[in-house]
Design a binder for these strands. Structure first.
Lengths: 342, 342
DNA sequence: GTGAAAGCGCTAACAG
DNA sequence: CTGTTAGCGCTTTCAC
């Protein structure tokens, strides 16, 4: 009834002088409604600014039209990692037009907090599916989600052969390959790879590609891979170590933050980039263009990845036909931090 | 019924051999339940891994236990601004323990997209309230939300005297004050302020504080404030201009990204920081420690701000008693990018 | 073409 | 103390 609260379908119905089921059919585009009725309903709905209650629809349909994401913050991790922002951008591009929402949960690093978050999402039925990022070595999330019956899609490469649906760029190796070849072409022979945390799947993947490409070109890569467990902060230490020994002429970093830290470390040690040392990052965050020298880096199509992941999940939920979103392959963006080997 | 679907309250009731209302009372901690019954119910619920359906509860209570946030991306804005990440961290610290969710909506810069997002949130009844950030000059969001009847809390300073509830640090001016005084103490006399986009309220606020502090110390600040409309990318240009004229010995930047861009610009022009030029940022993003020289910057308690905002909104919704979260005042973090005037 | 009525999973009166 | 029942706002058979 009138006055204060939000209007309901019956308010619209009485204003239009029809039954509630007529209103329902109209808003859901069902057939069996005369044009006259349809218009009266539409007019009434517009006048009342009425839209079906998401909760009521959700209860009825046993579908919330919301997807979930749980992010683990710290320890040591910088809140949420920066690529996250671009990913969400892509995800939302698929969700918003379809009236889906994205429910975010940031959890602490405490044991079990993450699992509890997924459990709650599933048991309370708050979302229809979840998106996963930051694939981990020995990742237990897939098994958990399967157990909970929550549809899930991973952005990235699954650990081992977890049968979890996942999305990846076409030619996922292309960027690193280009990076190494770029370096080789510039005469670099001692190239080091400073990898990220060993707990992340992409760390191993990228390291492997790095070695492969070097191998194909007749170089023994092993001594050049620094098997650390590097965060941005740790990267500085890694660089210092590297520069102390038989000095590489180029370093590839696992991500842009590490590369920026590496840039600073080099500078601090009086090593000029790119004259004495070439540096390559990974991701092409906005940051890469802000530093000096501007960072040569492997660009990832984070937005495309987010979009693709959302589509695949939506498709699994029967919301969308198929999922042919093209994710651009990673590509090397050459800026100022690389140059010829001296 | 058994088998496949999610268990419902009646599954629990029959398993425990009681009525559904008994189960309801138990999970909601109502009185009038014998200990024996309570335990049988709890056991049954645990066995079935049952938790009340969030949707059903929401429909019943006309409360979703979810808060919303709509973020405007671009044009020109870097996806989502970095401080956002810390803010969300703080927000979730209040929401998660209370079973509240955070619904995120990222919208494009197109005219009306933002308003449409709020409208949908309100009309579909997807959230109980919204959190606002990035207070804008002539901000229309408050009026809109008021119109929509959606409770809202702003993180930051409202434009003009919008009566929107908002949260701020205690002593909001302290950080900038400390920054200017730090510079003055080191003999700087020509200090410039490179401000952010004029559309943001904090731009004007910070600029005003900057002038005030300088004025209190007997300096005429006007020529030193660069009235641009600076993004991180634009900051480089601003710095170049500044360094071309009667050169300042120190520059304060509206945020850390701009400061980093400024650092690079200075370096590109052969100006040494901090020897020839001191640089101060704002926010203390993780980035500030990664660059060289490490950035002296005004730290903001973003996590505290997020927490406080969430609490105020939760309080307005009657979910929590009062909202006495203390937000630490901004404070200057002195690192390497500042030094004595030469 | 249209409307009446059942029911999604839950909570809150109200009886017993 | 415990169970029965009426809806919350919507969609969907199923009669008319």
């Amino acid at each position: 009834m009138g006055g204060s609260g939000k209007p309901t379908i019956s308010d619209v119905a009485s204003l239009a002088g029809v039954s509630v089921s007529a209103v329902s059919k109209v808003v859901n585009g069902k057939s069996g409604i005369s044009t006259a009725t349809r218009e009266r309903v539409l007019a009434a709905a517009a006048k009342l600014r009425w839209t079906p209650s998401a909760t009521a629809v959700a209860l009825r349909a046993a579908r919330t039209r919301a997807l979930g994401m749980v992010l683990r913050r710290g320890p040591g991790l910088p809140g949420t990692d920066p690529p996250f922002t671009l990913l969400v951008d892509g995800i939302e591009r698929e969700l918003t037009p379809r009236g889906y929402g994205l429910l975010l949960h940031v959890v602490g690093g405490e044991q079990g907090a993450e699992e509890a978050a997924y459990r709650r999402l599933a048991e309370e039925g708050r979302v229809d599916g979840v998106l996963l990022t930051g694939s981990r070595v020995g990742d237990t999330r897939f098994a958990l989600l399967r157990d909970l019956g929550l549809p899930a899609v991973l952005v990235g490469t699954p650990w081992d052969d977890d049968p979890i649906p996942s999305v990846r760029a076409t030619h996922p190796d292309r960027g690193i390959r280009q990076a190494v070849e770029h370096l080789l072409r510039h005469g670099h022979r001692r190239i080091a790879y400073l990898c990220g945390p060993g707990s992340r799947v992409h760390t191993h993947h990228r390291k492997r590609v790095f070695k492969e490409v070097l191998g194909e070109n007749g170089f023994v890569p092993s001594p050049s891979v620094v098997d650390g467990d590097f965060t941005p902060a740790g990267a500085a230490v890694g660089v210092a170590d590297l520069l102390a020994g038989p000095r590489p002429t180029a370093i590839l970093f696992a991500d842009d933050s590490m590369a920026v830290a590496g840039l600073s470390a080099a500078r601090r040690l009086g090593v000029d980039v790119p004259r004495e040392l070439s540096v390559i990052g990974h991701d092409d965050l906005p940051l890469s263009e802000l530093v000096h020298p501007r960072l040569t880096t492997v660009r990832q199509d984070l937005v495309g990845l987010g979009q693709a992941a959302a589509r695949v999940l939506l498709a699994a939920l029967g919301e969308v036909e198929d999922a042919p979103v093209r994710v651009n392959p990673p590509e090397l963006v050459i800026r100022e931090s690389t140059g010829p080997a001296r």
